[in-house]
């Protein structure tokens, strides 16, 4: 409980509890089995209120990335340049994250990624970050 980001809310608590435990968890509907992200109190697909937190593979593919040279906030200035990415999870949802243990010159869209956990800019609680899986590109673009 105490290793969660200060901004966690009741609707997102399950997500951040997963991160604190080193596991990526997404909301899944008990009635229609749809995954959803970001979390909310109801299933956006069938409007059911019966949702569970389920661990996911943590695997995805690189949908896009940028190397950020200008920090949006003064407290992030020491972190530049950093890699901001969109990751399309195997289960479907898109996540924004940072890429770690790599550099921009190695990256190609479609590369296979996996989640790791760390806290680049937060006082409390790990964030889900991503790194290259085996350093190889998956099929497709």
């Amino acid at each position: 409980m105490n290793d969660m980001p200060e901004f966690a809310t009741p609707e997102t608590q399950g997500f951040w509890e997963g991160c604190a435990a080193g596991e990526l968890r997404l909301q899944r509907c008990n009635d229609c089995s749809a995954w959803q992200f970001p979390p909310r109190a109801f299933c956006q697909t069938c409007r059911s209120n019966a949702l569970s937190w389920e661990p996911v593979t943590g695997r995805g593919r690189l949908a896009s990335f940028t190397e950020v040279h200008r920090a949006p906030l003064p407290e992030m200035r020491e972190a530049v340049p950093y890699l901001l990415a969109l990751v399309e999870l195997e289960e479907g949802p898109m996540m924004m994250s940072n890429l770690v243990d790599t550099d921009a010159s190695r990256l190609r869209l479609g590369m296979a990624l996996e989640a790791v956990f760390g806290r680049p800019g937060l006082k409390r609680g790990p964030l889900p970050l991503f790194r290259l899986r085996d350093g190889t590109a998956s099929e497709g673009t």
Binding site: P5, F7, A8, T9, T12, F37, P38, A63, S64, F65, T66, V68, R70, A71, P72, L73, P74, M76, A79, Y82, L84, A85, L86, M95, M96, S97, N98, L109, P120, G121, L122, L127
Partner: peptide, 29 residues
Amino acid sequence: AALAQVGHPQFEQPFGFSVPAAYALVARA
């Protein structure tokens, strides 16, 4: 800094989201 508020407070901003960075993601794709 003010414009970065259009990023999701939990699932975009903590990763260093900015509006230029978001459009850069669109540009790369």
